[in-house]
């Protein structure tokens, strides 16, 4: 019976066993490169970002304004119908205050990051982005925010054409 198994297999190694060459290892660094086609919906989305605008697609069957835009509605499973501009303002749906960078290295200046649902799109539809011009103690779910665009000449057609979302002043915070 399993409760009586005397030996559970596996030989544990510590990181020192690797570093000190106590065990045999083989090292390899892959060098893979990619060029992604942005596709129909994202190409227009990125071109509009460069112009300082956010755009969505409407599905006339379910009536949803889909943001980020896509050429087909995954619910109705039919092509979407029209391009619709949405606002560059929205609401913080959720966020994190991250002390980890992309490689899980510790950082001292935290990154404020989260999901913004944008005004003009269907409820809860948004994108992930950074937040700025707010202290870690100020950020909260439900906060109204607006895109802080990079200067027109430095925009390249990327989600990073928005530097971050900042508090929308003059609105209930």
């Amino acid at each position: 019976m399993t409760a009586n198994i005397a030996r559970w297999p596996g030989a544990e190694l510590g990181s020192k066993d690797l570093e000190n060459g106590k065990v045999t290892t083989q090292r390899y660094r892959p060098d893979a490169k990619f060029a992604w086609s942005a596709g129909e919906a994202m190409s227009r989305f990125l071109a509009e970002l460069q112009q300082g605008r956010l755009i969505a697609r409407e599905c006339k069957n379910c009536g949803r304004i889909l943001f980020p835009p896509r050429m087909f509605c995954e619910e109705c499973f039919r092509p979407t119908d029209e391009w619709v501009y949405v606002k560059d303002t929205g609401t913080i749906e959720t966020y994190s205050i991250s002390y980890l960078d992309t490689d899980a290295r510790r950082i001292t200046e935290p990154i404020l990051v989260g999901v913004v649902s944008v005004d003009g799109a269907s409820p809860k539809m948004g994108i992930m982005h950074y937040f700025g011009e707010m202290a870690t103690g100020e950020i909260r779910i439900g906060m109204k925010v607006q895109a802080k665009w990079r200067p027109a000449e430095s925009r390249v057609g990327s989600v990073l054409d928005i530097e971050y979302f900042r508090p929308l002043h003059g609105v209930d915070r």
Binding site: D101, T102, M128
Partner: peptide, 10 residues
Amino acid sequence: PILDRPLKPN
């Protein structure tokens, strides 16, 4: 690759 990766997510 288009929407999320430029933000260097963890």
